[in-house]
Write a protein that binds this DNA or RNA. Structure first.
Length: 498
RNA sequence: GGCGUGUUGGUCAAGCGGUUAAGACUCCGCCCUUUCACGGCGGCAUCACGGGUUCGAGUCCCGUACACGUCACCA
């Protein structure tokens, strides 16, 4: 006989009606973009309702554990500001928060469920084949391979005998006849015939629960109000609802999210080389930009505004805006968000972020990295754009003289030559070398020469940088280069022009 | 194969029986300009298909196609 006081004792101390969501990854790999989005939505739902966001680790598959995966999860959540209120590291009122630490709890509830008639012990060992290498193909060819349920019909004395003989067993869910309906906040009401459902294993022979069991027990005991997860669980949700019914519990609200795709037919995946959160960071994307973009992938705020801080997202987020169809991850749009976030940074913040990238190609300590950061600030989409944009500071590239030919600024080799001569003369006479003085010097010179600014500026910039496209104009570049180096490069240009 | 779900421009998407079918990204053109970028203006381009229901359908119903998910002692 089961001790029912045990269950009352460990029933959740969380007040009903409180919004609580959870992010429940299994530590099997890296944090892909879809995962991050699920975590974000769960966080937003909780915080919008002034509720709790918990972290639970689903590690019941001992074979798939990956070293270091937990650290990636903690670090990503922390970096993104998706701070949890309860979790393995923080503890909390409904712990433990790691499933393998909850093993005794599942065993108790499994026994209860057997007693309640919602599950049965299965002694079949034949039904433990090696994992099918290609279950999809098998099902397509042979149809579904359902367990025949023979152990569900075992007489009591036979069960007792097997138990007494220590026969290993699993616990399977008993699926009743009829139909099961559940409601999802994104997909609406879904009904299935119970005969399409299998008597799934709830407790494995190693005594650990499967996801199918653990998620129900944990979500209930932890007082989870909204279960936010990927839409791959849509098909098994009826089974979970049946479990809630057997226990006499109220099921949570479901929020199933469609996947983030790499193209029309494939999910984002590590195998295809799609970037994880960490990869994106390495590629020079800002956390806030990634978060903002990911929030909008498969969710629409309704209005025309697209840029939101995390705080604004909490305010504006609504489950109603989550879309049912999958969304394709668009790197171009991420770049757009990233450049907007970079431009919105303070000059100091940008300099701090950009410095290591600048130093990849600008090693000459004479150059003012703050000034270089300033000319880059409004001009890069990712931090990784930086090194090659400023590589000309350390070494003047070998450039071709037709670079001097430019229609818009009305320059060609001949005009450029005279412009450089004039600029060199003016610069030689310039003692005080600052951005302002260089600017005044050049502007005055253009006026004296009676040419448009571009006609003078263009050749000076080409000679100074040796590149057609540069961050900043002639003035900024010359100012950073300093007088001697500017003059050296301008004279070199003059030489080239014959 | 069974079951489930989805389908508005190239991409993200708004739309909730009557709209010139929003907006953003991309791309193109123009303006601004010291190259580029930023910014401003403009442009290309969409309701998967077929039947209904209705005075009227992207919007509701049915079917078809296609796609995805699921059918593990994985989650």
């Amino acid at each position: 006989m089961l001790d029912h006081t045990y269950f009352t004792a460990i029933e959740s101390p969380i007040p009903t009606g409180k919004t609580r969501t959870r992010f429940a990854p299994s530590p099997t790999g890296y944090m892909h973009v879809g995962n991050l989005r699920t975590a974000l939505y769960a966080y937003l739902i909780a915080k919008k309702a002034k509720g709790d966001f918990l972290l639970r680790i689903e590690d019941t598959d001992q074979a798939r554990l990956v070293e270091g995966a937990m650290e990636v999860i903690y670090k990503t959540l922390a970096d993104c500001g998706l701070t949890h209120d309860e979790g393995p590291d923080l503890g909390g009122p409904v712990g433990p928060y790691i499933q393998t630490d909850r093993k005794p709890i599942y065993a108790q509830y499994a026994d209860l469920l057997v007693e309640l008639g919602g599950a049965y012990r299965c002694f079949c060992d034949k039904s433990n084949p090696e994992p099918d290498p290609d279950p999809d193909a098998t099902c397509a060819a042979t149809g579904p391979v359902k367990y025949d349920g023979r152990c569900s019909r075992l007489p009591a004395d036979e069960i007792a005998a097997k138990l007494a003989a220590n026969t290993p067993y699993v616990i399977r869910q008993r699926i009743p006849e009829g139909q099961t309906t559940f409601s999802d906040l994104v997909f609406g009401q879904i009904t299935v015939d119970n005969d399409t459902l299998d008597d799934n294993v709830l407790i494995k022979s190693d005594g650990l629960p499967t996801y199918n069991f653990a998620n129900v027990i944990d979500d209930h005991l932890m007082g989870i109000s909204h279960v936010v997860r990927g839409s791959e669980y849509l098909s098994s949700t009826p089974k979970y609802n049946l479990l809630y019914q057997s226990f006499g519990w109220t099921p949570p609200l479901y929020v199933h999210c469609s996947p983030v795709m790499r193209d029309a037919t494939h999910k984002m995946s590590k195998r295809h080389g799609d970037p994880s959160y960490e990869d994106l960071i390495d590629q020079g994307y800002l956390t806030d930009a990634i978060l903002n973009y990911v929030a909008l992938l498969g969710w629409s705020p309704g209005g025309e505004e697209e840029i939101f801080t995390r705080e604004q997202l909490i305010e504006v987020f609504d489950v109603k805006g989550i879309s049912k169809s999958p969304a394709i991850f668009d790197m171009d749009k991420l770049r757009h968000f990233n450049s907007a976030y970079i431009r919105a940074l303070s000059p100091e913040a940008f300099h701090a972020l950009a410095l290591p990238y600048i130093q990849q190609t600008v090693k000459n300590p004479a150059y003012d990295t703050k000034a270089i950061a300033d000319i880059l600030h409004q001009r890069c989409e990712t931090l990784c754009d930086i090194p090659k944009k400023v590589d000309f500071f350390d070494t003047l590239p070998a450039y071709d003289i037709d670079l001097y030919e430019n229609k818009k600024s009305k320059t060609d080799a001949t005009i450029s030559k005279s412009m450089l001569e004039a600029a060199i003369a003016a610069f030689e006479a310039l003692d005080h070398w600052t951005s302002e003085s260089v600017h005044t010097c050049l502007m005055t010179l253009a006026e004296t020469l009676e040419v448009k600014n571009a006609t003078l500026m263009y050749p000076v910039r080409i000679a100074a940088a040796g590149k057609a496209v540069t961050p900043g104009g002639a003035v900024e570049i010359c100012a950073i280069l300093g007088k001697p180096e500017t003059l050296r490069r301008l004279r070199l240009g003059l030489e080239k022009l014959g």
